[in-house]
Design a protein around this nucleic acid. Structure first.
Lengths: 241, 241
DNA sequence: TCATTATTGTATAAATTATATACAATAATT
DNA sequence: AATTATTGTATATAATTTATACAATAATGA
């Protein structure tokens, strides 16, 4: 029997998290896939307990999924269309896996609770991908990073939620100086620029970018990074607030 | 008996609307006051019916309060702290008006529904204040415009919600070109500048402001406005999209 | 050892945008 | 017809953004 954790939660209200990571010059999104037949990908999500705030709920969900406690988190939009229920998802799941299978694995009352219309609060998180060890939940076959340009088809409106999160990230990137949350403790200027370029989807002039970031006075310059390459080694930097 | 319209709505989810208007060189916010003893001001709000989207719910609430159908609307934040309930408001109301009075005017089941913890979606609206005829609901003693700098103390966290709405408005004003929603069909450049100044809380140079707005190419210049004053008459403009 | 190469850090020039100042045009009023 | 307050626009100055240039560096290999 798989628990959906329905009791003692606010009904018809959910949280969906777009967890952004950065590696190999690509923006990545974490997405679990269910064990059942049918290739069901989704966003990490959950419900709000009566005794926790919505921000706490988002942090709990993120910690469950990534093992990281202090995560950069931003609430970016609520999704509240009338047809936002996962009823059609459950129908498809039942169709592919059999009614007996579903009846065997899920509590009927919880199924009723979870197939109602849900209003979902969208959060996005920025994580240092090297620190994340993706955690599979009870019903997950896998939890993997996908290029944002190459996401699998997800259930409900989850692909649209990712698109909206990206727009919000683009708007906040410069103003809130949050790019550094996607990087390890120390990093090179080139890595920062790569994030800006992949998030904003445009190339930037290296010389001007470096000047702009340094002029912000938010980074501390450390020792040079050994690259082994036949050229000048770049400095390492650290967020200095 | 006063209806709280609880049934057939999503439980523990509410909508609060910050309705902005502009007059006498001041940014105004619409706030109803309850008929009961105790000076209870609040934001116009309501609940989400099972058969309407959250945006539709916000529009319904706005139309109920202002009589206007096509309103500029922006969802800006969700308020979801654990202690967000109006239990203390009801306690105070009962204290001041008597238990018998409350028992007489409110259905016990509805009271139970409405005093739970609520997660509230904050919307702000921009209206042409001259078009609004504020509508009193069943339990309202008044519905009036208050200077945003001089708001009455409101129930729960409603004053904070207004503050958050203003921050969001400030961020969006230039980017989304929404100031014109606060003005009548036709307006002078000076009126636009007054809105910018009062929203951004800083003075702007008239000459540069006029150039900037005209260079956007979003306004149509109409005839001159008769002012009767002993100086050059300003042009009237209209949003030209 | 010392050109060669790719990349980094920074300086400077050019273009664009923002801010400040100036001034003629206008619609009453005296 | 001179005066006044305000409007519309032009121009000068300052600041910022964008483009280009170049020396410094860390290997590589003749």
């Amino acid at each position: 029997m798989i628990s959906l954790r329905a009791s003692d939660h606010i009904p018809q209200l959910s949280i969906d998290c777009v967890i952004f990571g950065f590696s190999q010059n690509q923006l990545k999104v974490l997405s679990p896939k269910l064990i059942f037949k049918g290739d069901f990908w989704s966003l990490p999500g959950g419900f709000v307990r009566q005794d926790e705030s919505i921000d706490q709920a988002a942090r709990r969900i993120l910690e469950e999924r990534t093992g990281i406690k202090d995560i950069y988190l931003e609430q970016f939009r609520v999704f509240g269309e009338t047809d936002r229920s996962n009823l059609s998802f459950w129908d498809r799941l039942t169709e592919l896996n059999g009614e007996a299978f579903v009846a065997e694995h899920f509590n009927r009352k919880e199924l009723e609770w979870i197939t109602k219309r849900f209003v979902s609060i969208g959060y996005y998180a920025l994580v240092d991908i090297t620190k994340v060890i993706p955690v599979k939940m009870e019903a997950d076959a896998s939890v993997e990073w996908y290029d944002i340009q190459n996401l699998p088809p997800m259930i409900m409106d989850h692909n649209q939620i990712v698109a909206a999160a990206l727009v919000s990230l683009q708007q906040n990137l410069d103003q809130k100086l949050i790019a550094f949350n996607l990087l390890p403790e120390t990093f090179t200027m080139n890595e920062v620029q790569q994030i800006y370029e992949v998030v904003l989807n445009k190339t930037l002039l290296r010389s001007n970018f470096q000047k702009k970031i340094l002029d912000l006075n938010v980074l501390e310059r450390l020792e040079k990074k050994f690259t082994g390459k036949a050229n000048k080694a770049p400095y390492l930097y650290r967020w200095a607030q």
